[in-house]
């Protein structure tokens, strides 16, 4: 009654189109996965086997580089959270006027391609500069982590800022202070537990980005998983498919955990962190 144009018959007819679109989309998105999986199983002629996976897992370089990237991702998440959470809290509490500027800065890594960023690092922080990061092995590692923090900033900040929008940080802060807590205690004991789901969302997304990252690791000569993947791709036939399936599984795991973390509170807002950019006006 409220929709005179969509008669029952018309509605049935209009549903065929959407179904065709969705089925074609599912085909396009599943085919490469099926093909990759099939390819990864066919290392031995004539039979399906997990030989390619065995070959991958028995490669010490795989274990070393994968471990390196997992640790780099975890360090990135810790450094990124320590940088972003207090900033988002402080800006919301004290300098609401600065929020658009902070937001703009955190979105810049989507504008500046990673290859340009690392090129800038190499020019600015070479061994003869005022901060010779690339002059030592440890310095280069720190530079890699900072680069990863920059790459994950758009996602981390959006997730955390959205999380803070959902709770009343001002009242929570005042409540904490009137009970005698200082700002640091309030931040870690009151605010952080309340935005934990948001931080986790940002963390899983950062993990997915960092684990297979190629350009920064490659140009900073780090023994990371991304450059290892590129190397395997140039001289192995079946292992790359097995690695692609492993990478896909890792991405799935991250996104699955992200969904779980996001479901708790700000389910719809954090569930699709990439969608936050067009969303932000309606949230502000």
């Amino acid at each position: 009654m409220s929709a005179p144009a969509t008669t029952p018959g018309g509605r049935r007819a209009s549903r065929a189109g959407p179904w065709i679109v969705v089925v074609l989309a599912i085909l396009y998105f599943l085919l490469p996965l099926v093909a990759t999986f099939e390819f990864s199983l066919s290392m031995l002629r004539g039979v399906w086997s997990f030989e390619a996976y065995k070959s991958v897992f028995s490669d010490t370089r795989f274990r070393e580089t994968f471990t390196f990237s997992v640790i780099a991702a975890l360090v990135t998440i810790i450094v990124g959270s320590l940088l972003i959470v207090p900033t988002a809290y402080w800006v919301r509490l004290k300098f609401p006027k600065l929020r658009p500027l902070v937001e703009f800065i955190t979105l810049l890594p989507l504008v500046i391609p990673p290859i340009v960023l690392v090129f800038g690092y190499l020019r600015l922080y070479n061994s003869s500069s005022f901060l010779p990061f690339t002059g030592s092995a440890n310095g280069t590692y720190v530079l890699l982590i900072f680069g990863y923090v920059v790459l994950s900033m758009p996602y981390m900040y959006r997730a955390v800022d959205t999380g803070m929008a959902a709770i009343d940080i001002r009242t929570l802060t005042e409540a904490g202070e009137s009970l005698g807590a200082n700002r640091i205690t309030v931040l870690f004991k009151v605010i952080l537990p309340n935005v934990r789901a948001a931080v986790l969302s940002g963390a899983f997304l950062s993990f997915a980005i960092v684990i297979g990252e190629f350009v920064l690791a490659s140009l900073l000569n780090q023994p990371a998983f991304g450059p290892y993947l590129a190397l395997v791709g140039t001289h192995k036939a079946y292992e790359p498919s097995a690695l692609a399936m492993i990478a896909f599984a890792v991405t799935w795991a991250c996104m699955g955990l992200l969904q779980l973390a996001g479901r708790k509170r700000t389910a719809r807002r954090v569930a699709a962190p990439l969608a936050v950019k067009p969303n932000q006006g309606s949230q502000a």
Binding site: T36, F214, L229, A247, T251, M255, L274
Partner: peptide
């Protein structure tokens, strides 16, 4: 879509070579 939009980089190239 959340997964696929993050499934870029080198593994994606491998998947399409296999396809």
């Amino acid at each position: 879509s959340g997964v696929a939009s993050n499934f870029a980089g080198i593994p994606l190239a491998f998947a399409f070579i296999a396809t």
